[in-house]
């Protein structure tokens, strides 16, 4: 299941986000890393240091693009100029798939710079699916949509979040970037069982997973990406791997970023669950023989 049409039949391992404080370390020490995830918007310029660094990274590493501003859920039309820039970057990175969020964030060309929650309605699902198809057709690569953390729910919602995600990806025929930490954060904020979420999504569509840390406040949790992954999130990740199989996984660490080694070590903890899963699969195979 890990290599599927939603991640372009790749078999990537454990990746980390390419972040400015790590540039020098990566270029001088050349550490062994399965792949880097880049935030597309940080490299959609005409020139400068970021692109220069990216080109050097591309000579040595596999890179996957992750975006924050396609806003599949926004009611407004896709911005063609933006898509053109994105396609130029796709050609540069040769990313096997491209991910962005199942959310909205702009109205009539005015941007919130946030990943805002959608009402879980059929109308919203149809709108998002249509835009995902448009993006995929234009960029000509597989698209994976990520579930976001949310802090608000709408009266108008007609289904659960995982039913909504399923509705969207089935209609768009696209992949899922399953963010396990986001599921945990939203489950705490909206009081649902996160295991129901993981069990409820179409596992064969999972192209990639995200893990991350978050910040807990008295009355809610915020998805801050500034801590190590907590045990309950690792437990959910274990469940997801059991259901999906070892899948390209990325640790997000975007604020209070520690050393490269610390981030990479935290990410590599994910392989513990892969090994168990691999052992179980081998055992099953032997038993069949």
């Amino acid at each position: 299941m890990p290599a599927n049409r939603f991640n372009n039949f790749t078999n990537y391992g454990i990746g980390i986000g390419l972040r400015v404080p790590h540039y020098d370390h990566i270029l001088t020490e050349k550490p062994t890393v399965d792949w880097f995830e880049i935030i597309s918007e940080n490299y959609m310029q005409e020139g400068g240091r970021a692109l220069h660094i990216l080109d050097q990274i591309l000579e040595q590493y596999q890179v996957v693009q992750h975006g924050v501003s396609l806003y599949f859920g926004s009611k407004e039309r896709l911005n063609r100029t933006h898509l053109k820039k994105l396609k130029d970057l796709v050609k540069r990175t040769k990313t096997p798939w491209l991910s962005d969020h199942l959310c909205w964030g702009s109205v009539d060309g005015t941007y919130s710079h946030d990943l805002l929650p959608l009402p879980y309605t059929l109308d919203a699902a149809k709108n998002a699916a249509k835009k995902i198809r448009e993006v995929r057709d234009y960029l000509e690569i597989p698209i994976a949509v990520e579930n976001v953390s949310s802090y608000a729910e709408f009266h108008s919602s007609e289904m659960t979040e995982w039913e909504f995600l399923t509705e969207v990806v089935e209609r768009a025929d696209c992949g899922i970037l399953l963010d396990v930490n986001n599921i945990y954060v939203s489950s705490q904020n909206h009081t649902f069982d996160p295991r129901d979420y993981i069990l409820g999504v179409p596992h064969h569509r999972v192209a990639q997973m995200h893990i991350a840390g978050h910040s807990k406040y008295e009355r809610f949790i915020i998805d801050t990406h500034d801590h190590p992954v907590i045990d309950p999130v690792w437990e959910l990740y274990d469940l997801a791997i059991q259901k999906v199989g070892p899948t390209a996984t990325l640790l997000e660490w975007d604020a209070s970023i520690p050393s490269f080694q610390e981030v990479h070590d935290e990410a590599k903890k994910a392989t513990r669950y892969w090994k168990d899963k691999d052992k179980a699969a081998q055992k099953k195979k032997r038993a069949k023989k």
Binding site: D114, L116, Y151, A152, F154, N189, H190, T191, R219
Partner: peptide, 26 residues
């Protein structure tokens, strides 16, 4: 009328999380 409250947060509290994020980020 649009946002559901929960046992810990009113509807306004929930929107306020996003509003503060919007202003602080910019």
């Amino acid at each position: 009328s649009e946002i559901k409250p929960n046992s810990r947060l009113t509807a306004v509290d929930r929107i306020e999380i996003y509003a503060r994020q919007y202003w602080f980020r910019i």
